[in-house]
Design a protein around this nucleic acid. Sequence first.
DNA 1: GCCACCGGTGGC
DNA 2: GCCACCGGTGGC
Length: 160
Amino acid sequence: MENTQQSKRQSVNGINLVDIWSVQCGECFKWRLIPTEEEFEEIRSKITDDPFVCSKKPDVSCDDPADIERDDSRTWAIHKPGIPETPAGFKRRLVMRKDFSKMDCYYDAPNGKKFRALTDVSKFLDKFPKYKRDISTADFSFTSPKIMDDTIPTVAGKKL
DNA sequence: GCCACCGGTGGC
DNA sequence: GCCACCGGTGGC
């Protein structure tokens, strides 16, 4: 079972935004809310070497009830492990498709360039070699979270 | 002309 | 069958 993940509210007025970030405890498997995307990113990028446990949240232990349960009131997107921490100055973006079939991953570079695949990163590093001091293609992963099929919103029993 | 977004597919 | 990648394009 994966133990980092992000959940996402169902479409409201056509707006699809991630409104909840949560992480699963590696010991009791309860889900804990993470207040900000930045904190989630920090935990997520280190999860393999430094598994998340309830006690990492202030004044929380595995004895406390879960912050949130997995149900179909929202769409859940589970992050894959091993995605590197986003380099400083870069922004990793996940965009849900309108039909909830998948998410697309993009990075924004400090100079405004946008990447949609590792090949874009390679081209960028060739064009702007000064960045090679600090980053390589290994610092990027375009692997997007897995949408949990049973949580995709439906209309009259059918997927959008 | 740009770019956000989507559909299709080659390689695994 | 999945998914990383890329070509195309509609809307601005």
